[in-house]
Design a protein around this nucleic acid. Structure first.
Lengths: 97, 97
DNA sequence: TCGCCATTTCGCTAATTAACGAAATTACTC
DNA sequence: GAGTAATTTCGTTAATTAGCGAAATGGCGA
């Protein structure tokens, strides 16, 4: 609960979660192949306007909180939403908050 | 959204919200009279083990986020949950997150 | 009015979080 | 195996948040 809330308590991380709801729309460069794998760090970092290392840390926080899934494919790491766990968290909040 | 999440991103504040779900149980000293008004700062502060000023700041954060309602009665300020707005927030999170 | 009590505000210090660039790591490509 | 590109880790600095005690405020009651 605390970890999840802390993960959401940051502008940049909220925006990333939002973008990943519709990757096609927010990352048109990322077309085709890796659509269901998610979006690679470089593109997210570029769109957010942060350094690569900063974005890497943000994505790690979101992953540890259970909101994102990461898949390493060669030299790229693709991130996508873990909608099941996001929904589960929202429901737990609705029950317990 | 950000403000609400930040408000929840703190152990002490989460515990206060939890306690106020059942004031009778968690604040038996506060019996009777002011039951529906809520619980005064002093009792909450004492239970949490913080200074009065620290708790005052936490309660202000929760109030600004819309999770608590405050009623000043004489020299006491009583806090209680704003369950309507808490529920509304949980639902918005369920929709938008 | 005076003094007291609960609460809030102020000024400050410590802890946590965010950010960067440089260096290290990982994994293709040649 | 060497070179290259993407990502992560490391070390550091800046910004935000949490905490306290002391002082100020607001309101009761003698």
């Amino acid at each position: 609960m605390l970890g999840e809330c802390k993960a959401l308590a940051n502008e940049t991380r909220l925006r990333v979660l939002e973008w990943l709801k519709d990757p096609e729309r927010h990352f048109p460069e990322s077309a085709g192949e890796a659509a269901e794998l998610g979006v690679c760090v470089g593109l997210i970092q570029q769109k957010a306007g942060t350094s690569a290392s900063t974005m890497s840390a943000h994505l790690a926080v979101l992953q540890r909180a259970g909101f994102l899934l990461a898949t390493r494919r060669g030299q790229w790491t693709y991130y996508r939403r873990d909608d099941d766990r996001i929904r589960a968290f929202a429901e737990r909040l609705h029950r317990d908050l």
